[in-house]
Every structure is written in C-alpha cells, then in structure tokens.
Write a protein that binds this DNA or RNA. Structure first.
Lengths: 252, 252
DNA sequence: TGATATTTTGACGTGAAGTCATATTATCTC
DNA sequence: GAGATAATATGACTTCACGTCAAAATATCA
C-alpha cells in the first residue's frame, strides 16, 4: 500500500500539518470559539473552502490536535517506563512524564481537555475518534504493564486472600485508574480551579506526588515511599524526558 | 439592609430564577453554544434585551448555574459530615455526597465543568467569580474539618517525625487535595473518557472508592479499610443524602 | 496535447450575539 | 389621582462566522 506521493499530494500533506500548527496556539489560548476558519485560511494563504477539504468542521481540527497530543504523551510514557529502576521507580517516572507533558507541551494538554466535551466530541468523525481511543488505550496499557511487572517481581500483591487488606478487590486496571484520576485530576484542578490557592496548596506538583505515593503505599507496593531517594530519582527522570523532547517544546 | 422588595423587583427576581431554570438543561446537554439568547427570550416570553438586563452575556449565565451547583454540593457535603460516625466514616460520606451530586444533579455537575474553561471564565464578572470561589472554598473547608477532627481524635497522624513514613510532608490541605483529585478526577474521567471501558473499568464508582481508601490507608488513617463495614455505611449515607434532596433532582 | 479528474475558490445563505434608541411601564411627589 | 421622573422592556440593527456549493483553476493521465 506504500504508494509514492504525487507532488500535489505532498503539498496537501504539508498543508495539513501547517493547519494544525497554526490552529494549535489559537485553540490553546482561546478555545474552539477563538478558532476562525476565515482567519485560519487567510494566514494559510488559501481560501476557506480549502480548509474544509481537510477537516469537515472546527471540531475535527481540535480532535486532530488532541490525537497529536496523546501521541506525544504516549511517547513520553514509553520513554519513562524504559528507564532502569524498581517497579516503583518506573511508575513514578510515568507521573513525571505527565508533569513534563503539561509543562512543556501545554498547548497539547489544552487541546486534550477541550475534546473531552460532548459538544466538541459529538461533531467529530468516528474514524478519528477511534484513533484517539487507540492512543489513549495504549497509554493505559503502558501504565498497566508496569503494574504487572511489579506483581511479577513480587513488589505488589493484589487481592490478598488473607486478612482484610486495603487492597481487597483491587485489580490492575483499578490501580491504573487510580493513578490516572489522581494525577490527571490533580493537574486539571491545578490549571482550572480558582480556589486551589485559597485552600493553601502552593506546590501542587509535590502534593500530587505525595498523594500518589500514599495511595501506592496503601496498596502495599514495595519498596515504600522514601522522600529522599524519590526526589533524586525524579530529578534524573525529568532531565531525561525533557531532553528527549523535540525543539518545539515550551522552554522551562 | 433588608429592604422590602417592590412588586416589580419581585418579578425581576423570579424571572432570574426562571432564566436559570430554562438555561440549565440546555447548557447541560449542549454546552454554551447550544444556549441561544433569542430562543431563551422567546421561551421566557420576553424580548432578548430583557435577558441582557439580567446577565451581560451567555457566559455569565453559565457561571450563575455553576454557583448554584456548588451551593448544592456544599449542602450535600455539610449533611454528609453531620452524620454520626468515625472520622473515616465521615470522610467516606463526603465521597458519597459527590456521587449523589453527580447522579442526582447532573445538570449542575455539567455547568460546574463548563465554567472551568478560560474561554468561559474570562468573560464573566469578578463579582460572581468571587461568589463561586467562596462556595468552593467552603466545600474544601468542610472536608478539611473532617481531616482535622481525625487528627484531633488520634485517628490520623500527619508528619510523623519518626521513621520514614509515607505521610512525611503531608499537611491537612494535601489530604483534601488528594481526595478531591481522586474523586473529582475519577468522576470526570468516568463521564468524559472514551477509553475507560477499553481499560476494563466497569464499575468506576467502586474503583474510585477503593482508590480513596487505599490512599487513606497509605496515610495511616484509622480504622483501616474494611470492605464489609464500609459497604453498609455507604448504603446508609446514600439513602440519607438522597432523601435530603429537593424534588427537582433526577430520579435514580 | 487534449480529456478527465481533482482541487480551489469565494460569494452566499443562515443564524446567533450583543447594542441601543425608543417605547413602555413603574414609582414617586404633590 | 395626575403628572413628572426614573426604571425597565423592546426588537430592529449591526456584526461576525460557519459551512455550502457551483463554477473556475489546476493537475493528472492517456
């Protein structure tokens, strides 16, 4: 199926990237409403109709941006779990991947949030929706892989049949969902909740990490949380992940 | 400051409620874009301009709906913590209050999510923003109160100076933030993530509860999680909270 | 090179937001 | 209670953007 592209088709491909490139900062800062097809076309140097040859509506552009976003996140996750360390270090590395993602690719993070609205989602094509789901699922499988590794290594025991353990009923997927809720939830609250500061949360990242560790400790994931060793690991991981980013990432 | 209202002013007050009543389901199902001032006016039996006497723009209506929402949530939280039980039971009751809120007042939940977008938030008045922040802060103070009660009762010990405990560095606010991230994050993912089912999460509520309990266990909050006793308590709390709701709540 | 297919164009129809001069209605004063 | 003044309601109007589509321009192919 690998046909050579005609010059025209190349041009069209390039234009599609260009559309996303132009739309990304606009959507990030002003949401769907700020994205004007008319203006986008004029910046692109084409007529409005041409853009509609690429995307049937504005929502589809946002979905395309979200797919791009989750692709990037998946890449960070995969790099994170490839680092050598204990299962607990590797799961922590994914948390750091999330932080790096939010800090260095903020426009993608915004796009990903926007698509999570029925209003937007409902107007997009089934095909691209499927693509997004696939990427998201891969992300979760990456996380699940580390949980399974932990179990295989004996660092984590779920469903202890013995005495009434806190882990009773937990499955691998529940652990993934828990980490996801806590990290994603915390990062979203950080960026959207006007009253977080009122609560007295100044370093929300540190709070999220501590909370994740509390949950993992509660599940009995070994070795237990050790603030000092943890901090060192985090710094190393962040350095590695940031270094792996292409040049278009935001400066930090 | 308690002046008697003139007949006209009463009418205006009533109309304001009516506007919110009409807007609520529309905003909930179709978002900001679905709310047409023209149609709202016609349903209300007035001209469009009249609505602009109440709210300077559509966004302000959504913010008003969100304030209403957080008011309701605060009420549920307050009822939850008033129930007699251990500190751990009372904190669990707040989790159930969240579930009841999402299930029985889904339109409010949606409005609360919508306002968390810069696009919407940025167009609203500072005054009403302040109102929302106040309500949100009260909610969090209610949660923080239970955490403090737990500490006072000796059920929870934060910042143990002794051996490297998982709780090192945790403050009361961090615990509140953690529960908030986990519960809110989980409930949002439940309602907006297309790939949760792919992951294999079928009963997300049960998963959220287990995860919260794992985190609290990790913090050493006593008494530790006991699935059986917990389940009974949950049922009782839900019954109480649902019964306290006014008639306009969704049937379950 | 001419025929056919693909792509581009931008004027057009539609619909909704927010404004504001004017009309209407309420309130106050004597 | 009638007239004056203040508050409120109205809806035509301006502005703006989406998405369409028939016609024009361009590319591909034989």
């Amino acid at each position: 199926m690998e046909t050579t592209l005609s010059p025209k088709q190349r041009e069209i491909r390039r234009r599609e990237s260009r559309i996303l490139e132009l739309a990304r900062p606009v959507v990030s800062s002003g949401g769907l409403a700020a994205l004007s097809m008319e203006e986008l076309a004029s910046r692109l140097g084409t007529a409005k109709g041409t853009i509609y040859n690429h995307f049937p509506n504005k929502e589809e552009i946002v979905l395309a941006l979200a797919v791009e976003a989750v692709d990037r996140r998946l890449d960070l996750f995969n790099r994170a779990v490839m680092l050598r360390g204990s299962s607990r270090q590797r799961i922590a590395a994914i948390g750091i991947a999330c932080e790096v993602y939010v800090d260095r690719l903020p426009d993608r993070f915004r796009a990903e949030q926007l698509i999570r609205h029925e209003t937007v989602w409902g107007k997009t094509s089934a095909k691209r929706q499927e693509t997004l789901r696939t990427c998201e699922t891969r992300c979760m499988h990456t996380v699940a892989g580390v949980v399974r590794d932990a179990i295989a290594a004996g660092d984590l025991v779920l469903s202890t049949p013995g005495r009434g353990s806190a882990t009773r009923g937990h499955r691998v997927e529940d652990v993934v969902f828990g980490l996801w809720s806590l990290t994603h939830g915390g990062l979203v609250l950080e960026s959207t909740s006007p009253s977080l500061a009122d609560l007295g949360i100044v370093d929300s990242r540190a709070a999220i990490r501590r909370n994740c560790n509390a949950m993992l400790d509660g599940l009995g994931w070994k070795p237990a949380y050790d603030p000092k060793a943890y901090a060192d690991w985090i710094d190393r991981v962040r350095g590695r992940l940031v270094a792996s980013l292409p040049a278009d990432a935001a400066p930090g």
